[in-house]
Design a binder for these strands. Structure first.
Lengths: 337, 337
DNA sequence: GTTAGCACTTAGGCATGTCGAGTGCTAACG
DNA sequence: CGTTAGCACTCGACATGCCTAAGTGCTAAC
């Protein structure tokens, strides 16, 4: 029994099953792929693969389907990178032209990715760390309520309402605004934390508490910012292939709504800064995604934000990985260095 | 054959069917509801209702289910307003406390509504018309690209990137910013259109074109703003009751992703400024929603934005309508006059 | 190590039969 | 004239039994 052929058999099983959605038997295998041996030999190989836990049989007399472990081996060692079709490249290119708002770019990206892969696409908001402060605005909504607006040089705008803990008048707020702005304009967001204490200290004691609250709010804005937000598209693709989720797509939809789950999942994976990372079936920390796989990668200037695709375990990994990688590169390019 | 009893029979059919999801027959009807007549009489009534197109039989020997027309009559004439439970009122109340960002409020609202109704909830961003301009910021991203930020007194922040059509330096942009800001601060967004031409006219001819582009961008921000955006929650509820969408929830999910469809639908309905409007099954302009109903109403200072719920035709209309109305009132209250 | 052959297992399709729910109709009743 | 009881009829849902096709595992031969 030759080891290379066994891997070839696994590859053939994965490909056929992904294509047909049906358990694949030994006979069909020798017919579709020109392995130079008979079905009996393949049966022996399959028995070995099953012993290793790479494939499994749904019932006694059916073909085999890959297990999570089988997909894992396929993704890690067997699959070849599949180049994108010219049409797909063109679609990605043409998206570059209408570059508008960041929101807009992400929205288009995620729609594109979901169409390319026929699956659910997700993209996380990029971090701001390299940006510097362009403008700060305080807007008094109520005597103690202030709207904080932070504008960065990259074109990102963050906003938040905070309670300053003491009554402030319009004049006081305006003074604070001028003070903060003159002290902080040009500061990189990543250094904001170090600069803020000095700014607060130089405020008149009577407004020190308010300044402290404002500083805290600014820091929250700069750091956590929108990293914890994400955009999603293609949920309808889930339903189209509802054959893939035998029980129901309910748990999957729930996972998608609980964005926290997805965010954690994305953060945990894709630690390899270069490649595309895959999380298969029960490898996912969340039970609702036990029959789903996530293909993701990092993008952006400092490769911290994530973009990815979610679909059934039985997905076309090579194509999906190629699409995710291409879209991530494209995104990194238009977001600039 | 008495007319009032016929309506009573229809009401009973709707209620039972909504409750059990199964076609309801004449015998079960007389048992569950204490109508003072025999099942044979009910059969006669049901035959009449069927002739009028208010109910229909899935097959020869099954009970009847309401048609779209039947639901319509039920909603318009028969159903009584169902008060919310104390627990529900309390849930709505407790949401009022953590009022933060507008984004935050809408997000919470829509989650709450989807939980109250066990269906998909949707809320449109409110208009800004009564707000006045608090601050304007221009940020130079590239020689010709400018990020426009508009901050309104209500705490809303709008942003957009535009192409000014000519190269501008930092100084020029700063001058334009000061000019626009001093001319426009305090202007109601609704009057922005009238004020802008004067502002543009008083700009030096060399920068007139750029000023024109900026003015146009501002007007777009103020007017269209985010009215065309919406927040959604509870899509997982669709899958849970996938019995309700016999074919597949695919078309429904597609409709939800095509937010344009939903926005138009919401705009077309809910013209009655006081009540809750219902669009049932095939009354919906979009085919994918042929088996869905939408319950919506207007909210906000000028009652232009919409909030609503989408679910299967077979939904508990009285309860859903009560929840939508309550949430809309609550939303209007915290968004203030 | 590979192959052919064979007994064995099982899902799925199909025909059949039965049961129960529900209807429509007719005739009788107040 | 509206209401009721009774009855024949229809049809879906379900269970049963049977058969076939697909596929496996094993053994013995090459």
């Amino acid at each position: 029994m030759s080891e290379p052929r066994k891997l070839e058999v696994l590859r053939a099983i994965v490909e056929d099953y992904v294509h047909s959605r049906e358990p694949v038997g030994s006979k069909a295998l020798v017919e579709r792929h020109h392995l130079g041996v008979s079905s009996a030999t393949i049966r022996n190989d399959m028995a070995a693969l099953e012993d290793e836990g790479l494939i499994t049989a749904p019932h006694t007399s059916a073909g085999r389907i890959p297990t999570d472990k089988g997909y894992r081996l396929f993704v890690d060692q067997i699959s070849a990178v599949k180049p994108l079709s010219p049409a797909e490249r063109k679609a990605i290119q043409s998206l570059l032209e209408g570059s508008d708002d960041l929101d807009d770019v992400l929205d288009r990206t995620v729609r594109l990715l979901s169409q390319l892969t026929n699956q659910v696409a997700v993209v996380q908001y990029p971090h701001l760390s390299r940006a510097t402060i362009r403008h700060i605005e305080f807007v008094l909504l109520a005597p103690r309520q202030v709207l904080l607006v932070l504008i960065a040089t990259t074109g990102k705008v963050e906003q938040r309402v905070i309670d300053v803990g003491q009554d402030l008048g319009e004049d006081a707020i305006a003074a604070l605004r001028t003070h903060f702005l003159s002290s902080l304009a040009g500061t990189p967001l990543s250094r904001l934390g170090q600069s803020l204490p000095g700014v607060v200290f130089s405020v008149a004691p009577g407004q020190r508490a308010a300044a402290q609250a404002l500083a805290h709010g600014l820091e929250t804005l700069a750091h956590s910012s929108r990293e914890d937000r994400m955009v999603m598209a293609g949920t309808a693709n889930l339903a189209r292939s509802n054959v893939d989720f035998p029980l129901s797509i309910g748990p999957v939809l729930e996972a998608l709504e609980e964005q926290v789950v997805l965010l954690r999942l994305l953060s945990d994976m894709a630690q390899d800064p270069r490649g595309v990372t895959v999380s298969i079936g029960r490898e996912n920390p969340y039970d609702g995604l036990a029959e789903a796989s996530v293909v993701a990668t990092a993008y952006g200037p400092d490769s911290t934000a994530k973009v990815g695709v979610l679909g059934p375990t039985r997905m076309d990994y090579p194509t999906t990985m190629a699409a995710v990688r291409a879209v991530a590169r494209y995104l990194s390019r238009i977001l600039g260095p």
